[in-house]
């Protein structure tokens, strides 16, 4: 397992480096002078020149990339334009809000989606199974920002059950959790459907396997066969799907943060784009990329821990 984890971690480092190269090329290829954009139209040529030298833009491109690359790996993402604070610090301040949002979205979708998928698989082609199928497809089909807006209108504005905006009082976990409910529902609801479909399909496949017949032939209890012998195999593709799907969840989080006026990386990027705060956009995108890669790494490690064949086959 350790061997597998080390190899997989090495792969993650390579992926992040490639992502950095892509991100750097994108900034480099965007037409226009970053110094001019940063200083605005009223700056003099001398001021721009001074900023260009400060930002290292006068150096050859490969040196610029190396500087970007080396400082990013050390956690230095430059300074943001408006307040001159370190980008890394600004992004990391917002990160916990987004992490909490995504984590609770995942908790929703896993806590409802997995049992629902198993339940439907055990009752395949019954009315209940079809109903779960239709509902799953429905929640998958509705975009998460539509869910966010309707959830806001129904539960916060009309019924007044839950707060509409913000992330709750700092230092008050109760208030923060209450403020998380609607946004995380918006992020996670579609995933309830995905996971239910996925678990159902892989449960049906794994219940057909011949080792399940062996388990039945030894008279093992049905509950143990379904929830232990079959589910441990059926869960594997779902974990992988969640790891990859985290990218989509991150983009749902952007919408949820905007609709519910919550702090977070999504809201940060949105505001940074509106104010053309490019170093902040770059930094936030890079942090998000690292987050995505880390969650994928985690998903692969979980699959490795659950499936001995993956560990030895890597």
């Amino acid at each position: 397992m350790l061997n597998y984890a080390v190899k997989r971690l090495g792969l993650s480092v390579v992926i992040v480096s490639v992502a950095m190269l892509l991100l750097f090329s994108m900034i480099y290829l965007i037409p226009g002078d970053p110094a001019a954009v940063a200083l605005g139209p009223r700056a003099t040529e001398a001021m721009r020149e001074a900023l260009r030298i400060k930002m290292g833009l006068d150096k050859p491109v490969w040196i610029q990339f190396w500087n970007f690359f080396a400082s990013a790996w050390q956690g230095d993402l430059g300074r943001e334009v408006l307040s001159d604070r370190p980008v890394a610090q600004v992004v990391l301040e917002q990160l916990p809000y987004t992490l909490a949002l995504i984590a609770s979205g995942i908790i929703w979708s896993v806590a409802i989606g997995i049992p629902l998928g198993c339940w439907a698989a055990v009752r395949r082609s019954s009315f209940a199974d079809r109903l779960v199928g239709v509902l799953s497809v429905a929640v998958i089909a509705v975009p998460s920002f539509v869910i966010a807006i309707y959830a806001l209108l129904i539960f916060a504005v009309t019924l007044r059950w839950l707060p509409a905006i913000g992330a709750g009082e700092p230092g008050d976990p109760g208030s923060q959790i209450v403020h998380l409910i609607l946004p995380s529902l918006a992020v996670g609801l579609g995933w309830v459907g995905y996971i239910a479909r996925m678990v159902r399909a892989s449960m049906l496949e794994s219940l057909e396997a011949s080792h399940i017949r062996t388990a039945r032939a030894f008279g093992l209890p049905d509950r143990q066969i379904t929830y232990q012998y079959a589910l441990k195999i059926a869960i594997l593709p779902t974990v992988t799907l969640l790891g990859v799907g985290i990218g989509q969840m991150l983009s749902s989080a952007v919408f949820a943060e905007i609709v519910f006026a919550r702090p977070g990386v999504g809201k940060l990027v949105y505001d940074a784009i509106l104010t053309r705060n490019y170093p902040l956009v770059t930094g936030a995108v890079l942090v998000t990329t690292v987050l995505f890669v880390l969650i994928n790494l985690l998903a692969d490690l979980i699959v490795g821990a659950l499936d001995p064949r993956v560990r030895s086959g890597f």
């Binding site: 396997a209 011949s210 080792h211 017949r213 062996t214 388990a215 032939a217 012998y229 441990k232 195999i233 659950l306 499936d307 001995p308 064949r309």
Partner: peptide
């Protein structure tokens, strides 16, 4: 059973 490859659960 016939199929020794599949007769045992691969993850236990």
């Amino acid at each position: 059973f016939q199929d020794p490859m599949g007769a045992l659960n691969p993850v236990f």
